[in-house]
Write a protein that binds this DNA or RNA. Structure first.
Lengths: 345, 345
DNA sequence: TTGTATGCGTTATCAA
DNA sequence: TTGATAACGCATACAA
């Protein structure tokens, strides 16, 4: 069996309370006594039982991260945000529990929330991407008796704590850059239409083009599913129905990869015949051929901020409620050869 | 405050023990009483405190997954394995706790193990890739008083429980295929030399070539770091020092992407001038240009098996020790255009 | 400065 | 079939 505080106390010839004080430091302990206790802990290989400690302290020092589905983890966004979360959580002394949700059915959501609650997590980072109808289940998180929740990468909402990225601005950055390169007819390959990110990026594309008085016809808009394969297909269709395009904005890098594939297959050269911009700025895009211009989101940062903010709320406690805050991160454009018009240069 | 079993008992007008029996079903409860209890639980929104339950049961139903570093999560291997783990864990009623280790210093390893132990996880999946000297710290996991451990993706060891993939066989598959396509001079871009995977894949390359009586000179071996950027550079060097090569085996898909980049830059056509095979078979390789032949590892499966096996050991309990088992998964080759020699066809 | 006793929310062992 | 009561391992208020 593993050593308990009892064992340590006996071994050191002191009372159980003194041992507790020795390692918490909340009450003074004679220096000589502490020595003996420390030695005893060492010899016994003692480590406090965090379940017991959590029980009495009403504080588990666990943060629950909820992400959507499993294979989605491969999506660059999740890994990056998780990395940021991990770093900050580690800094602040939290452990991380990972929860997965497949669909977004109400039952599943509630089950997950209940499980988190049952485990007495101190806080939740809700990183499920928002899709149509989700506003519905978000309400559940408010009515039940749950720990504080931060919504990651969602549409801002004054009633909620959200840390998110300005997707519309990111798309604008990309499109404005293409316009500046002299492009006039710019197609877009979006993510799934029901994702919030997709809508925001599409809106950025549309708004920027409209401001410049350029074409935003539906024939320029193709809906992909974030995967490279869909980028291939969308590009195919796009080139067929709009042979006049001179640039494409792919809403993530994988789909941009697919777009490159199709361009190659049809003997089109990027950037000579067509400019291309992606989204995410994954480490790989610099090795695409040609190197891909892309929008960097600051996902690492978003994860970190989410934990920071959650921590503040937790520390404040239930009696000292913190007003909901929106934290919106501005993305940046990283320019590479795929979007540099040679003719212009 | 959240409702406790006490509250439910009071509300239903029964004793606390009866409530416990009602939801565990371990002792019979009058059907009418159970109704009342269920109703009370519902009204109060009661969910058992899993910390308390874990404390008394000596069983947390938590599995700790240890992975190396943070940004590494982007590496396809981790996400896939984690997905497999998640699925099976969910099936068997475990929650997942994620632990990150940056370096592999002894201190860090021990700290992590102690934290896991302190949280009373039921089992550990050690998914830190094995690099030089790791055999050293692995011993720590054996001496201390820790929950059962499964080593994921490590060199098999009869004294340990390991679930892993036959990397040497995977590399052989790739190289044999290239030889069959008529290649005679086959270069390799490896991962970091101190990773077990790198060594195994290199060994597979060497052995297969030697069996065929082909060149395995060191000038054919370039060391990358798994990232696409390194693939670019290695390919550059390789082409310079061995202009006679007719194929390259890149030890993961990202580096293969970099290799394609360099080939393009130098005006070389794949597969016309040079055949190429990658490793991992990520979803994206079908959208590379050309589509990349790659080795599929069955990572999802490995994660799942690891959980299964861990579960068995946990269920068996300390008194009924299960003999260590090695589970070795065989990879498969997925052939695409990058490795199909047109001349031969 | 240290020891004792009580409670955190469960489960399990007794009696009733 | 049900109700008290003792653990589980720790923290803390109170007494010494």
């Amino acid at each position: 069996m593993r050593a308990t505080i009892q064992d340590v106390a006996r071994r050191a010839g002191v009372s159980i309370g003194t041992v507790s004080n020795a390692l918490s430091g909340k009450r003074p302990v004679a220096v000589e006594t502490r020595q003996r206790i420390l030695a005893a802990m060492d010899e016994l290989g003692y480590h406090p039982n965090l379940l017991a400690r959590g029980l009495v302290n009403q504080r588990s020092h666990v943060l629950s991260i909820v992400i959507k589905e499993l294979s989605d983890l491969g999506l660059y966004g999740y890994s990056s945000a998780l990395t940021g979360i991990q770093r900050e959580a580690n800094e602040l002394g939290y452990s991380i529990m990972l929860h997965f949700v497949n669909g977004s059915t109400e039952d599943e959501i509630i089950n997950t929330l209940n499980q988190i609650s049952a485990r007495r997590a101190d806080g939740i980072i809700w990183a499920i991407h928002e899709i149509d109808g989700n506003r519905e289940w978000v309400r559940h998180t408010l009515t039940g008796n749950y720990p504080p929740i931060i919504f990651l990468h969602m549409h801002p909402d004054p009633a909620l704590n959200v840390v998110t990225i300005d997707n519309q601005a990111g798309a604008s950055l990309a499109v404005a850059h293409l316009i500046e390169q002299g492009c006039r007819t710019i197609g877009i390959i979006t993510g799934p239409a029901d994702w919030w990110e997709s809508k925001a990026r599409l809106a950025g594309w549309r708004q920027t083009l409209e401001q410049a008085g350029l074409d935003t016809d539906v024939s320029l808009v193709l809906e992909g599913n974030w995967l490279a394969e869909s980028g291939k297909n969308c590009m195919e269709t796009l080139l067929n129905q709009r042979p006049d395009i001179d640039a494409v904005f792919a809403c993530n890098d994988s789909m941009a990869l697919g777009a490159i594939h199709t361009a190659c297959r049809r003997g089109l050269s990027i950037p000579d015949d067509l400019l291309l911009v992606g989204y995410d700025n994954t480490p790989e895009v610099a090795s695409y051929w040609p190197p891909l211009t892309s929008v960097s989101q600051g996902l690492l940062q978003s994860g970190q901020i989410a934990v920071e903010q959650l921590h503040q709320i937790i520390e404040a406690g239930v009696n000292q409620p913190v007003a909901p805050r929106q934290h919106i991160i501005q993305p940046e454009l990283v320019i590479r050869r795929s979007s540099i018009c040679e003719k212009k240069a």
